[in-house]
């Protein structure tokens, strides 16, 4: 079975599992990690954990939750290298969008997470720093809006067939009342590249 076929099956499984667990889309954290082409990505941390299957080097299906299961989500992710090649310095842009189901205060929210990162990459190392705005709007009562702006650092190393790393983010979030709040995020990172995408170029 070809790697492309395996990738399609993996993506379909991820999507099915997410739907079966009543997930819908969130803040796209895993979309903002290292650009390794087609890959399966796990970003496990607090308060957000996120997974992505990059079924194309530029297109991902994402699934995530906010611990401990306060919100679950499913969505799509896009990324594009604005400046630079596969190695060295570059400028990446990402966008995630989808639906989120909140559980403590039951509801549905739409999320949109644009971001951009400056990165440095070698054969076995990735470092990026950038800014992300993972916005969310709660659609049912009580309606709510949050517009976070956060700085992020990502660091990853190749370890055989996988990439391991960590990320952290801090920033401020603004609500519909104008109130500002602190945003913090920390997570570990595992990615398993596959396919003929960016990683192999």
């Amino acid at each position: 079975m070809s790697r492309a076929r395996l990738a399609s099956i993996a993506a379909a499984c991820a999507l099915s599992l997410s739907l079966a667990s009543q997930s819908a889309a969130a803040e796209g954290l895993a979309v903002r990690g290292p650009n390794l082409g087609q890959s399966v990505v796990f970003v496990e941390g607090a308060p957000e954990s996120s997974r992505a299957v990059w079924i194309r080097p530029w297109l991902a299906i994402t699934q995530e939750w906010r611990s401990p299961y306060d919100a679950v989500g499913l969505g799509l992710g896009l990324r594009h290298t604005i400046v630079g090649g596969p190695r060295g310095w570059g400028l990446e842009a990402q966008m995630a969008a989808g639906w989120l189901v909140t559980t403590l205060l039951p509801g549905v929210a739409f999320t949109l997470a644009p971001s951009t990162h400056v990165r440095a990459r070698t054969e076995g190392f990735w470092f990026s720093m950038g800014i992300a705005a993972p916005m969310a709007v709660r659609l049912n009562a009580p309606q709510a809006l949050k517009v976070p702006v956060q700085g992020e650092l990502w660091l990853a190393f190749r370890a055989g067939p996988v990439w391991l790393g960590a990320m952290t983010a801090i920033g401020a979030s603004f609500s519909e009342t104008g109130a500002a709040s602190l945003v913090m995020q920390g997570a570990g990172y595992i990615a398993i590249p596959f396919g003929d995408g960016h990683e192999r170029r």
Binding site: R66, L100, L104, A144, S173, S181
Partner: peptide
């Protein structure tokens, strides 16, 4: 108890 504010924060 627990609830949510800012859409999805506990």
């Amino acid at each position: 108890l627990a609830t949510q504010a800012r859409v999805n924060e506990r």
